[in-house]
Design a protein around this nucleic acid. Structure first.
Lengths: 242, 242
DNA sequence: AATTCTCTGTACGGCGCCGTACAGACCGCG
DNA sequence: CGCGGTCTGTACGGCGCCGTACAGAGAATT
């Protein structure tokens, strides 16, 4: 059970120079993030910036009708709350825990102060933000052009990259909410993947058996995001294709 | 013919304090942007940052298959090349002129230098970037959930906000490329709008006759982006609903 | 062990968009 | 003026996803 090995489990924090870390770490708060917890709601003024360690958080847009769509996903490679240092202090999306786990958090003002010292933190966070932008852009493309099957593959890979194990605790219903499709659509797609021997699942538990095949079944969108993230955040280089 | 009233036609530049403008303006280059010109290609290291005045530039992702999808659109409210100050120096998207016109541009290094002085320019540009992020996120949502009819309305409104007149020079084929749909789909949708008396078009010229109705036919996505842009970029407040 | 709830599987009609094909309309050009 | 090219309109079959409905299987509760 990986826990509390310290804030540097988060790759962004780990990438900061010691001097900056020493300023920030004393103020960091360790928090548990249960599945479904809402870190902030659309329009809320953000109070904290969160740095996931083994949790995964989705940025989700909820429509007037109640339907939803995932904009991007954040794990140990990133942070939740870019709007704070971008200057807007709030966003139109909701941040919701997609995979339970832990995180560290900092009060908004502390991050702002450090950001405006214009040092390493600014550069690091802005590069991360660009990676996040890439992910959003690719989500838009994928939503337009690719099948549910392909999108499920992409989504599984994105989640997998942010976890230690190859098992996801995730119901098809929740995946459907993320992808913005029907639950039955996910059932069909997942069933096909299972019959191909790529995954195995059972009431909220999904095991990825063949990652290589999953990648080959995915659309280009995953690779694009992955490659660009590796370029922008070289310290991350997720263990995935290691 | 609106031209060359100076860089402050661009709202971002206009929002900068005089001191910063005086540093930058001498280095600004006035350029013509013909329809279809590619300002940068996916993966290119950006050499300039562009500030449109009366032109419109689309950020477009081109897939391996050649199909494409617009990620966001930039006009006089913004700039092209956020990747430069975000630190990535390149993006996965292409920037292509969607509506011919003019712009000013600055060499990459000049913007970087000014950015790292950590003054007004940083704040302004980051806020704009957040607005751009909002637009991308909403594009993803819209691609998932809304009909071509609704998306066409949204797209027309986004373009309209960045122009002086209510006439767009734009073929249905080009719009289809932006939306990532078939040209025939755009023909159908445009035909319906025309029969409703909302627009009138003719071989590459589209006149918007009833903007209010266009807004009511659009999905919520336009309003969301618009409202958030007004919040983040208060100096912009496009004349649209004036 | 029985009940209840959650999660997954399956089915069916309908619709929106796709791919393809082709025709007519308008413009620019020689 | 006539020709070629661009832009727009229409048609048709097909497929993917939707909305809805319901059944069965596994887990949790008692």
């Amino acid at each position: 059970m990986p826990h509390l090995k310290g804030p540097q489990q988060n790759h962004l924090l780990a990438a900061l120079p010691a001097e900056v870390r020493e300023r920030l770490y004393p103020h960091m708060e360790f928090v548990e993030l249960p599945l479904g917890k809402v870190l902030y709601e659309s329009g809320d003024t953000l109070r904290y910036i969160y740095f996931p360690t083994n949790s995964i958080v989705s940025l989700l847009y909820v429509m007037e009708s109640g339907a939803s769509a995932e904009i991007s996903v954040v794990g140990k490679e990133g942070l939740i709350g870019v709007a704070l240092f971008m200057g807007g202090d709030s966003t139109t999306s909701r941040a919701i825990v997609q995979s339970a786990g832990q995180a560290y958090r900092l009060l908004a003002q502390r991050v702002k102060d450090e950001f405006h010292r214009h040092g390493a933190l600014l550069h690091t966070f802005l590069r991360y933000t660009q990676a996040l932008i890439t992910q959003m852009a690719q989500t838009a493309v994928c939503n337009r052009h690719h099948s549910i099957d392909q999108q499920l593959c992409r989504w599984l890979l994105l989640s997998l990259d942010r976890l230690e194990s190859n098992e996801l605790k995730m119901t098809q219903e929740l995946i459907a909410n993320m992808l913005g499709v029907r639950r039955e659509g996910v059932t069909d797609a997942a069933g096909r993947l299972q019959r191909l021997g790529v995954i195995e699942y059972h009431r909220g538990h999904i095991q990825v058996l063949n990652r290589a095949k999953l990648e080959s079944l995915s659309c280009e969108c995953y690779a694009v995001v992955r490659k660009e993230s590796d370029r922008l955040l070289p310290w991350t280089k997720s263990p995935a294709n290691a």
